[in-house]
Design a protein around this nucleic acid. Structure first.
Length: 648
RNA sequence: GCUGCCGUAGCUCAGGGGUAGAGCACUCCCUUGGUAAGGGAGAGGUCGGGAGUUCGAAUCUCCCCGGCAGCACCA
């Protein structure tokens, strides 16, 4: 029999008969390892204990102590066990797919009756029974015809479809435990009893389209989370609770920042506190953009369909536009308009006024552009995904040769802004040419190469999003992560060769002839609305001092100090600090509690002692310690802290 | 948009075919208290909207609107 040489993690090499399985190797080492083993890693590949090894390899036997394989197996086996539990309880349920995801797994089912939340406890109970049976997990390789016939006989049409989608030369692997089986590429645990029965939890039920396609059947998805032990599960559930506390919708209400109501779905009523954040951020962005060589413009909200037809939006984007038709009876002139969903066509109109020279390029045209998009109802989410919002938008009109330099400038600009706003970490995605696109391959080659070169020159790591570019050009996306790990695209830069053509933008080159400029669409924050949502969540409402809507509350301890309270407030306001007085007939405990919950970063308490000494007692948010300083010192330090990062 | 769940006072929520409830917030009175809730009294809702069943609907049924989770979408 042929021999193979296996190398163990400690460097030991040993000879084995070809075809030996990791289970046999583990048994040869010790009986306890045989029992504790969950899988192997063979040449870096996660390997089932039952799979034979046929060539020389590096091998490691994994146990539950090896977090990465352990979590993958626990979650994957949980998915199978859950599917088995569901089919044992409701035998008419059809199974589809059940992959491992971050923190857990899901499985999609097709069943007439919808699952209800109470079913989750039922399924969990059944899962624990299955785990306690300690059924051995067996795997077999089947040929295609047998597998297809098997699933046809068992009325599992989705599995038949999955097999059809697997390339013909790949073996079909079946996994069994008890009488239940699933088509699965593995690996899996040795037996169901290896899954910790107290470290998983079924979380939610939701709809999901078969194969992610909204034209196909809506399945029922059950989500679960699973860990190595009970304590990790507890920690995870606790983390979710903490994340829920920093939900911007909850904090927005508690801090009295904004509200939304059903007469204007997806649009925001900004309250005074919220609007202070908004304007502070906008003023900051305006200063930064001016410094970076942008010119600011402003363009119309309601624009005739003729322009949208010319830009291509009418054809490609109409479903997402608010159409405004003037009532014929009252109309002085009949027209069909749309609220602008984007600013680009209007910016080209400004560019097209008068003749432009190559000397005018690059022309960086910025607008805090108020846009309205009719987003699908299910997409709306607090202030993060809305129908009315303001982009910190700009279009850079430039030559092809300038793409790289302008991209690099933008990445530097964005990095500076994000850093000022407390986001050192963000991810960059690069989306290249989609299948249906405008423009020649040569142009795409140039644009993609320029974007990548600039990204690398700016020192940014990026991940590739193949085929996800806009039809008019490749794009970069800058992504921030919210409190519960969801990603939000904020900044973007898109190269566009199409719109200048469609809207006939030209400049006169050095050669005296007309040329087509390239447009770079770019946004740094993305939208003020979304970015403020992310700011609120990432700071759990405790915004940096300069952005805090209420910076200082001066609270009297005794009403004899009221006059002094007003004096302190006036001094702070004169120095540019957002300060307010609290001379209500309440105890200082009450005031401190209320303003702490309101996330006011500094509470200045004054009683008779402070009045006599002309001092204030400062209590910072989140600290129990108070500090007594003179009024002058307080005004100086707080006014310094109130300055935006570019002014400090 | 799709699947499921939800909508009762400003907020958080209980109730459920027969006169609408609690806590907090709010208003007034007492209290002047030194760093996370001092005490008392009062006011506040045609139970998301519409239709139906019924002697009677917040409660049951249907339609619509909005919200939440996920999916799809994010040009």
């Amino acid at each position: 029999m042929a021999q193979i040489q296996l190398t163990f993690p400690d460097g030991n090499k040993r000879e084995f008969n070809a075809g030996i399985t990791p289970a046999e190797i583990a048994a040869g080492i010790s009986n306890s390892l045989r029992k504790k083993a969950i899988s192997a890693t063979v040449n870096g590949q996660h390997w089932d204990l039952q799979w034979p090894i046929t060539e020389d390899a590096e091998i490691a036997i994994n146990t539950m102590k090896d977090a990465e394989p352990a979590l993958e197996l626990i979650r994957h086996d949980c998915a199978h066990i859950m599917a088995r539990a569901v089919q044992e309880i409701w035998p008419d349920t059809k199974v589809t797919i059940g992959p491992v995801i971050k923190d857990g797994w899901y499985y999609d089912f097709d069943r007439e009756e919808p699952f209800v939340p109470e079913d989750l406890a039922l399924i969990e109970k059944k899962m624990k029974e299955i785990i306690n049976k300690r059924d051995e997990v067996r795997t077999e390789i089947w040929d295609r015809d047998r597998a297809v016939q098997f699933y046809k006989d068992n009325n599992e049409p989705y599995k038949v479809e999955l097999i059809d989608a697997i390339p013909g030369n790949e073996p079909l692997r079946m996994y069994w435990h008890g009488d239940w089986q699933d088509l699965c590429r593995g690996p899996h645990l040795q037996n169901t009893g290896q899954v910790p029965a107290d470290a998983f939890k079924l979380m939610s039920i939701a709809g999901a389209y078969w194969r992610g396609d909204s034209d196909r059947a809506m399945l029922q998805r059950i989500y679960g989370v699973g860990f190595q032990n009970k304590n990790d599960l507890k920690k995870h559930l606790h983390m979710l609770e903490e994340a829920a506390k920093r939900d911007h919708r909850k904090l927005g209400r508690e801090m009295d920042l904004f509200h939304m109501q059903e007469e204007a779905p997806g649009q925001i009523f900004w309250h005074p506190n919220g609007w202070r954040i908004y304007t502070e951020l906008q003023n900051y962005m305006r200063r930064r953009q001016n410094q970076a060589g942008y010119v600011e413009v402003n363009t119309p909200q309601v624009v005739d369909r003729k322009l949208w037809e010319a830009s291509g939006h009418w054809e490609k984007y109409q479903d997402h536009m608010f159409i405004v038709e003037v009532d014929e009876e009252h109309a002085r002139e009949k027209s069909v308009n749309a609220l602008k969903p984007m600013n680009c066509p209007c910016h080209v109109q400004i560019f097209n006024q008068g003749l432009k020279s190559y000397r005018d390029l690059p022309l960086r045209m910025a607008e805090f552009g108020s846009c309205n998009r009719y987003e699908p109802s299910g997409a709306l989410h607090g202030i993060m995904r809305v129908r009315g919002f303001v982009q910190d938008d700009a279009h850079i009109f430039c030559t092809e040769a300038q793409i790289e330099e302008e991209t690099k400038r933008f990445i530097d600009f964005l990095s500076l802004i994000y850093k000022d706003l407390g986001f050192e970490e963000f991810s960059v995605k690069f989306s290249d040419r989609p299948e249906t696109r405008a423009g020649s391959d040569e142009v795409w080659d140039k644009a993609e190469a320029a974007l990548i070169a600039a990204t690398e020159a700016a020192g940014s790591e990026y991940t590739l999003n193949p085929g996800e570019g806009a039809f008019y050009g490749p794009k970069l996306e800058f992504v921030l992560t919210d409190a519960i790990g969801r990603d939000w695209q904020c900044g973007t830069l898109q190269v566009d060769f199409v719109l200048p053509e469609r809207l006939d933008a030209t400049y006169i080159g050095e050669d005296g002839a007309k040329h087509r400029p390239v447009m770079l669409h770019r946004a740094t924050l993305g939208s003020f609305e979304r970015f403020i949502g992310i700011l609120i969540e990432s700071h759990a409402g405790k915004l940096p001092f300069w952005l805090a809507p209420r910076q200082v509350v001066v609270a009297s301890i005794i009403s004899d100090a009221d006059d002094y309270v007003h004096e302190v407030v006036a001094a702070l306001q004169a120095a540019g600090v957002r300060a307010e007085a609290d001379i209500r007939n309440e105890k200082i405990n009450y005031k401190v509690r209320e303003h702490s919950l309101g996330k006011v970063p500094a509470i200045l308490a004054v009683g008779m002692r402070e009045v006599e000494e002309r001092t204030v007692s400062i209590r910072r948010l989140g600290e129990k310690q108070t500090r007594v300083v003179t009024l002058d010192e307080a005004v100086t330090s707080l006014s310094q802290e109130a300055k935006a990062p570019d002014l400090a």
